[in-house]
Amino acid sequence: MPKAQETVLEIDLKSLEHNYRFLRTKLNPSTKFLSVVKAFAYGSDADQIALKLQELGTDYFAVAYVKEGVALRKAGITKPILVLHPQAVNFERLIEFQLEPSLYAFGILNQFMALLIQKKINRYPVHIKFNTGLNRLGFGEKDLESLFQLLQNQDNLEIVSLFSHLAATEDPQEEVFTKNQIALFEKISVEVANRLKIQPIRHILNTSGILNYSEAQYDMVRSGIGLYGYGNEAKFDAELKPIATLKTIISQIHHLSPNDTVGYNRAYVSKSPRVSATLPIGHADGIGRQYGKGKTFVLVNGQMAPIIGNVCMDMIMIDITDIPSKEGDEVVIFGPQLSAHDVAKTANTISYELITGISQRVKRIYTP
């Protein structure tokens, strides 16, 4: 890649391929792979990422909302797309673009069935979600009898899959809880399949589940963060390659005298002669105020430079006193050289929040 001349998010599709193939090595050849590309493919570019994954052979995609699935269809995605959190107001669009809803509660299930009956649609593909302990979305074990009564002897829905979501697959201290979730899913899914006389795809593993509990891969697994280069554990991060590098440049350099201040509210006070640099990136681009005041570092010419003062909407300031630099030099905010996991940790958050929060005004460029 040429040196950045503005704030850009570089997306390396070869690293995406590496991550996809690495995760595949943890699976049986027959296990299907669902690629999670919600939230603009975790802050990168859903269209380009999904097209590459479709080329690589992924079996399924997942998005959070109908709007995201519609965008993928318009971009040329033909593989099945699971909508994890559909809203009833968008059901017409969901059907129009042949998206497949997760049905997780009686309210949304009844609304979707009513629309199918109204439209005289039979055997529309759906996914039934069960709550096994995350307590976010999903039918509970106590709902099974009522669910059977509703789903038996109906022709409007074709149950493509049964699934659940694990709460703490990256935490070894929660192994007992995780295994109890898997056991409950096994019990529920077998009962549902037997009572309804169906043979659905079953899936429960997320990225950390693939890496730590591959024995529970069932018929399909789901990966989001792993595709983008993060494995939630150092040993897996070493095997994966971050696909996105957030870069910017030095716009201006200032030579500060003792007691000079920097930025809004004079949040930084120079205690000695210092050199600061201003960068064209700020909280409107996804680098929040929590990264300011010396908590977080960026990479300038291979050296770490702290963010000083308050992060502004469109700018941050850094201390480059001991770093040979000039205006126009490239600055790395995160990427393979400076992990988003480590950057996020300085602000007591996680890589997911940092990478998915990169504004759409930041230019995306690609390495094929």
Rank of each mutant, 00 (worst) to 15 (best):
P2H: 08
Q5G: 06
L9T: 00
L9Q: 01
I11F: 01
E17I: 00
H18Q: 09
N19D: 00
R21H: 12
L23F: 12
L23H: 15
K26S: 06
N28A: 14
P29Y: 07
S30I: 10
S35P: 01
K38Q: 09
A41W: 00
D47E: 08
Q48N: 05
K52V: 00
E55C: 04
L56Q: 10
G57Q: 10
D59M: 07
Y60W: 14
V63N: 04
V63F: 01
Y65N: 06
V70G: 08
A71F: 06
R73H: 06
A75C: 03
G76Y: 02
G76R: 11
I77Q: 00
I77M: 02
K79F: 03
V83Y: 04
A88L: 04
E92R: 13
R93F: 13
L94P: 07
I95F: 09
L99F: 03
S102M: 08
L103V: 13
L103W: 03
Y104H: 12
N110D: 12
F112D: 04
F112L: 10
M113H: 15
H127E: 05
H127A: 06
F130A: 10
N131Y: 07
L134S: 13
R136N: 07
R136C: 09
G138D: 14
L144E: 13
L144K: 14
Q149C: 02
Q152H: 12
Q154C: 04
D155F: 02
I159R: 11
S164A: 15
H165L: 08
H165S: 08
A167M: 09
E174S: 14
T178N: 13
Q181V: 07
A183E: 12
A183G: 04
I188S: 03
V192D: 05
V192A: 07
A193V: 06
R195V: 13
L196M: 09
K197V: 01
Q199Y: 12
I201L: 13
H203D: 06
I204P: 09
L205N: 08
N206M: 02
S208H: 08
L211H: 06
L211C: 05
N212Y: 06
S214F: 10
E215R: 07
E215G: 02
A216W: 08
Q217E: 15
Q217F: 12
Y218H: 12
V221H: 09
L227N: 00
G229H: 01
Y230N: 12
N232K: 09
E233D: 10
A238I: 13
A238R: 11
P242E: 09
A244Q: 10
T248F: 08
I250R: 06
I253F: 00
I253H: 01
T261S: 13
V262P: 08
G263A: 10
R266G: 09
V269I: 12
S270N: 08
R274T: 05
A277W: 04
L279M: 09
I281Y: 00
D285H: 11
D285N: 14
G286K: 02
G286R: 05
G286V: 01
Y291E: 04
V298N: 07
V300G: 11
G302Q: 08
M304I: 03
P306R: 11
G309P: 04
M317C: 13
T321Q: 08
P324D: 11
P324K: 07
S325A: 15
S325T: 13
E327S: 10
G328R: 02
G328N: 05
D329M: 09
V331W: 03
V332H: 03
H341K: 14
A347E: 15
N348W: 02
N348R: 11
T349R: 12
S351I: 02
S351M: 10
Y352R: 13
I355E: 00
G357D: 00
Q360Y: 05
